[in-house]
């Protein structure tokens, strides 16, 4: 009887693991509102990310039509179907919110697989708060990071300077369920610069997961642009 029970359990777990959802693609619409003491900005557009491609595509339709593509260590600006600029940047696609959501890493902001180590965990006012310290080699450059989660979802992250002063806070709110994944509908970001505060609110909507009908939107090949084959 016990043997039958174990075999049934084993078969069932193999069956379920075979059907475990592999999240690899995400898209949606965004609106970024930024405000400082002297400047204000609104950017609206659509994003596409396929973790197998490793390319993040942001198609802005406001304030002007242009596309920003992050691919490896390059940041391309596409205007009227042609590459207008190309900059070399650090490869941070694995730390983008899209990548972290697809890999269920948003709850610890991908720090588990970084040079940060978990220093403490505490429960406070309905939140689980973890504190992460940078490795010895990084301590001269970056400070600690605190992360809070509510209802198993990431709620806030606080970045500290090496002098232990808060330099940035991010809050992840209004989670929506899309294709079996939870995605924050609103991200509030407050950057502290001396006595000044810079606000940024990013809202997301129409999130689609594992969209298989529009493959071309997730793919980027700079060669196509040079030859003028693909126009966005």
């Amino acid at each position: 009887m016990i043997k039958k029970f174990l075999i049934t359990g084993l078969v069932l777990s193999l069956f379920l693991s075979g059907y475990a959802q592999n999240y690899y693609r995400i898209s949606g619409e965004y609106s970024i509102k930024g405000k400082s003491e002297t400047a204000a900005q609104l950017v609206m557009g659509k994003f596409y990310y396929d973790k197998n491609e490793g390319t993040i595509i942001h198609e802005n339709y406001f304030p002007k039509k242009e596309t920003w593509i992050t691919s490896d260590t390059s940041l391309y600006q596409i205007i009227d179907g042609a590459i207008a600029t190309r900059q070399t940047i650090p490869d941070f696609s694995d730390f983008s919110i899209y990548h972290m959501v697809l890999n269920n890493q948003l709850d610890n902001f991908g720090l588990e697989e970084s040079d940060f180590t978990l220093e403490s965990v505490e429960n406070s006012e309905g939140m689980v708060i973890t504190t992460w310290s940078p490795s010895r080699s990084m301590k001269d450059h970056v400070g600690k990071i605190m992360i809070s989660s509510k209802n198993k979802n990431m709620y806030g992250i606080i970045f500290f300077s090496t002098e232990d002063k808060i330099i940035k806070k991010q809050f992840f709110e209004d989670y929506v369920l899309a294709g079996g994944l939870t995605f924050p509908g609103r991200i509030v970001e407050i950057t502290y610069s001396g006595e000044k505060e810079v606000y940024q609110v990013t809202t997301y909507k129409n999130i689609r997961v594992n969209d298989t009908q529009q493959d071309q939107l997730y793919h980027f090949d700079p060669a196509n642009f040079k030859q003028g084959i693909r126009a966005l």
Binding site: K33, G34, T38, A39, A40, K64
Partner: peptide
Amino acid sequence: ELLVLNELECAVIQDQLTRAPFEMDLLPA
């Protein structure tokens, strides 16, 4: 802080604007 930008966002959605009628980059408040 974001009151004006929220209104602008509504105007963009309602009127389907695709271009800002003024320079948006680091626009003085």
